[in-house]
Design a protein around this nucleic acid. Structure first.
Lengths: 238, 238
DNA sequence: CGCTCATTTGAGGAACTTCAAGGTCAGTGG
DNA sequence: CCACTGACCTTGAAGTTCCTCAAATGAGCG
C-alpha cells in the first residue's frame, strides 16, 4: 500500500469547471424515481451541487460529521482509510448513479475523487425524513445499501484470492459495471486499484503482465485494456 | 482455507431441541420496535420458527431462493462461500439480534450455524411490504444494512493487515460485540475464524501464540481467552 | 527535448502457506 | 479407572507468494 499525502484542496464550485454539467445531472438522479413531479421536486430541494472535484480532491474527511450523502453524477469516487503507518486501503469505488456516505454520525472513511467527478450533495436528515414519507425513497435506499453490502461481501472474498485472480476479477467486474464496452478504459490509477485489491502496485503490474502473457487480456494503451477471454478468467480460480 | 464438506443436515424442528427457547425469542425480536402492539402482532405473523440448528447445519444454501431472511436469536451464524478449489471464505458472523439474508432473488452465500443456534425465519416479501406501511420497520431495516455495511468495510480493511493484527483485532471486536465479558469465550471454531480472517488455521494459531508471548492476551483454557492489554492491541499496527 | 510522474522490471527478503507430526481434550468403551 | 478414539489445536521445517528496495522504461506535457 502506498504512503499518501492527503490532498486537502477545497471544494471546487461547479461554475468554475466547465466539464461538469448541471441540468442533466439533476435529471439523472430523479429519473431513478420515475416521473413523479412532487417527489422530483422534494429531491431537488434537498440537494446541493452538483459539486465538481478534480482527481484526488477530498470530498469528505474521515471523521467529518456525516451531514451529507453523496450521489455520483460523473467520474469515479473512492472511499478509503489511511492508517498511521501510512498505508492506504481503498474500500470501494463508486460510479455514476451510486449513492454513498451511509454512516450515521461521522464518516469513518475518507471520500475522495478517484477521477475528475461531479457529485450531488444530499442532506442525510432530509433524505431520511423523505424516506419516512415516501416508501419509494425508503425502498430505494434499502436496495442501494443491500447492493453495496453484496458488493462488499464479494470484495471480502476477493481479498483471499491470488494476486493474479484479484486483478483479473477486478478488471472483469469493472468492465461489467461500465456497461461492457469494447475496450476497458480504466478510469482510476493503478495505485488506487492496488490499494483496493490489497496489493502493491508492483505486484499488480506483474499480475497484469502475467494475464497478458496468458492471453487473457491485452494492453491497447497504458490504461486501455482488451479483455480477450472473459471465460478463461473465470476458470483461473484461486 | 480449509477444504470442507457441506453439512446438509435438514432443518431441525424446535420441538426436537430442548436447548432452544420459544417464548422469549419472539419478545427479543419485537422489542427492537418498542411496545407497539399492532406492529408486534404484524411481525410475529410473518415469522416462522424459531428454528433450532446444530453447529455446522446449513440454514440456507448458496443459490437457494432468498424467500426468507434470518434473525439470530441465540448462538452464532456464519455466512460463507466455498469455491471450486475447496477453499472457504467466511464473510461474516452474526450474533443474537442480527438480521441477515439481504440478497434479492438468490442467496449468494451459504448461511450456516457456527454454533448451536436458534434462528427466526422472516418472509422477506412480507417484511418489505411491512416496511412500506410502517416507516419504523423501514428505518430499522436501513440501519441494520448500513451497520452491516460498515462492518463489512472494516472487514475489508482488516484483510490487508498482518496476521497478528488481524487476530488481535478479531478477538477485541468479538469481545466488544459480546458485551466485554471478563473472559472471552470464543464461540466459533478456530477454523471458522481463520477462514474469516483469510488465514490458515496454522497461521492463526501461531499468531495467537505470538500475542500471548507479547503479553497481549492469555489462554485461560482452549477457547477461553483473557485480553490483557486492550490498548496495546490498538497500538500494534500493521 | 527534457521534465515529471506513473508504470514496469529485477533481485533479495519477509510473511504466509503447505505438509507433516505431535499434543490436548472430551467422550467412549473395556 | 484407564486406554482408545477422533476432533481440534499447536509446532516445526520447507516452499511459495507477495513485498521491499532499487533502477529502468514509458507516457504526458510545457
Amino acid at each position: 500500500m502506498a504512503n499518501v499525502d492527503f490532498d486537502t484542496t477545497p471544494f471546487v464550485e461547479p461554475s468554475e469547471t466547465k466539464i461538469f454539467g448541471t441540468v442533466e445531472t439533476s435529471v439523472d438522479f430523479a429519473k431513478t424515481f420515475g416521473e413523479d413531479v412532487t417527489l422530483k421536486r422534494a429531491l431537488s430541494a434537498l440537494q446541493r451541487g452538483p459539486g465538481g472535484f478534480y482527481r484526488d480532491n477530498v470530498i469528505a474527511c474521515d471523521g467529518d460529521a456525516a451531514d451529507y450523502m453523496f450521489f455520483v453524477v460523473s467520474g469515479v469516487v473512492r472511499s478509503c482509510k489511511v492508517c498511521e503507518s501510512g498505508s492506504r486501503n481503498v474500500v470501494a469505488f463508486y460510479l455514476p448513479g451510486d449513492l454513498l456516505g451511509w454512516s450515521d454520525l461521522k464518516h469513518s472513511l475518507s471520500i475522495e475523487a478517484a477521477t475528475d467527478t461531479a457529485v450531488l450533495f444530499l442532506k442525510r436528515n432530509a433524505l431520511l425524513f423523505l424516506a419516512t414519507r415516501d416508501s419509494r425513497v425508503a425502498s430505494y435506499l434499502l436496495s442501494a445499501t443491500t447492493n453495496q453490502l453484496e458488493r462488499a461481501h464479494e470484495h471480502i472474498i476477493l481479498k483471499s484470492k491470488s494476486a493474479k485472480y484479484r486483478a483479473a476479477t477486478f478488471f472483469t467486474e469493472l468492465w461489467v459495471r461500465l456497461g461492457q464496452p469494447k475496450y476497458l478504459d480504466v478510469p482510476m490509477s493503478y495505485q488506487d486499484i492496488a490499494d483496493y485489491l490489497g496489493l502493491t502496485i508492483e505486484t499488480l503490474s506483474r499480475s497484469i503482465t502475467d494475464l497478458e502473457r496468458s492471453g487473457l487480456i491485452s494492453r491497447v494503451s497504458s490504461r486501455r485494456l482488451l479483455l480477450q477471454n472473459r471465460f478463461a478468467l473465470g476458470r483461473m480460480m484461486n
